[in-house]
């Protein structure tokens, strides 16, 4: 799948400026950048949620997982109904299993779930749409670190198990490096660097990538 010359404009403001990015089949492409770099606008454009110019080729059925698990599930719908919306009622149990949630949760409402469980339900809902591309927009930034670890492990497991193609967006370079095969860096609406994860992190070519790397907090010692 390839994103070609994609631009998103809000009035006179250009949020995404002529971005071309290839997302190889069965791989996870990590997209990093700070607030306002246009990474979320790019994600929404790929999903057809905002008007854009340029083309997205080879993407059949794009699904998205959102940042805030407290706002992305309909509070009046049970887990089963939420997941069944894309997949049909027969698939609920299988999808819950895929995201490592017990089947008993099917009858619960979102308010009865923890943040991590909600995010898993959102992933199951997206998987129910049989996505050719799954877009994950900051899906761990509202979670605790221990929960984040479990969700990241799940994402990597799903890639290996289902051959999932994924655009994984985060402002945290360490997280992106861990889950992604390819890392793309956005800055002020433009793609400034893209390459294999270890290469981008190990030998950053662009000055902005280096600044991002330097800003990642590390433990001393």
């Amino acid at each position: 799948m390839i994103i070609r010359n994609l631009s998103v404009r809000y009035g006179r403001f250009t949020a995404v400026d002529d971005v071309t990015l290839e997302i190889p089949d069965g791989r996870i492409v990590g997209l990093v950048g700070e607030s306002g770099s246009g990474k979320s606008s790019l994600a929404r454009a790929v999903c057809g949620l905002v008007p854009h110019t340029g083309t997205v080729e080879g993407a059949r059925r794009t699904q998205m997982v959102f940042q805030d698990p407290y706002a992305s599930l309909n509070p009046r719908m049970t887990v089963a109904r939420t997941i069944a919306e894309g997949a049909g009622p027969g698939e609920v149990e299988r999808l819950l299993g895929l995201v490592r949630l017990p089947a008993e949760l099917a009858g619960r409402y979102p308010r009865e779930l923890s943040g991590g469980q909600r995010q898993r339900v959102a992933i199951a809902r997206a998987l129910g749409g049989d996505p050719g591309l799954l877009v994950a927009d900051e899906i761990t930034s509202a979670l605790d670190v221990s929960v984040q670890a479990a969700v990241l492990n799940l994402i990597r497991g799903l890639r290996d198990e289902l051959g999932l193609t994924m655009l994984f967006i985060s402002h945290n370079l360490a997280v992106v490096r861990y889950v992604a095969d390819v890392v793309a860096v956005m800055h002020r609406g433009r793609l400034v660097e893209a390459g294999p994860a270890e290469q981008v992190v190990g030998e950053p070519a662009h000055e902005y990538t280096r600044a991002l790397l330097a800003a990642v907090p590390r433990l001393r010692g």
Partner: peptide
């Protein structure tokens, strides 16, 4: 969740 439903 409405955006998600639209995509589905």
């Amino acid at each position: 969740y409405v955006a998600a439903a639209r995509m589905l």
